[in-house]
């Protein structure tokens, strides 16, 4: 199935070739979890502060339990802020 991975700020270098504007579409197995997808792209777990699946935050303890679905958008940031 296809999902979209978006990595921002200092996590951008973990995106695979072909990514445009911090975003890439990927083919993944149907049982892939949030954490599984991030681990497969060597995104440092300790840097994954803000993890939004379709815009909704998922806490660290949920990330190895939530399986991705077709068309999901996973967006991840290190600790950031603004105002």
């Amino acid at each position: 199935m296809q999902v979209t991975l978006k990595l921002f700020a200092s996590l951008s270098p973990c995106l695979p070739p072909g990514a445009v504007r911090n975003k890439v579409d990927l083919e993944v197995d149907s049982n892939t979890t949030i954490l599984g997808l991030l681990d497969s792209h060597h995104v440092p777990r300790e840097k994954c502060h803000l993890v939004l699946l379709n815009g909704v935050f998922h806490a660290p303890e949920e990330r190895d339990k939530v399986a991705l679905k077709e068309g999901d958008v996973l967006a991840v940031w290190p600790p950031v802020a603004g105002g």
């Binding site: 978006k6 921002f8 700020a9 200092s10 911090n22 803000l50 967006a75 940031w77 290190p78 600790p79 950031v80 802020a81 603004g82 105002g83």
Partner: peptide, 14 residues
């Protein structure tokens, strides 16, 4: 790290 490197503008995508 975050604010010096990206400024407040990092919020645009967030």
């Amino acid at each position: 790290e975050g604010l010096p490197a990206y400024g407040t503008q990092v919020l645009m995508n967030v």
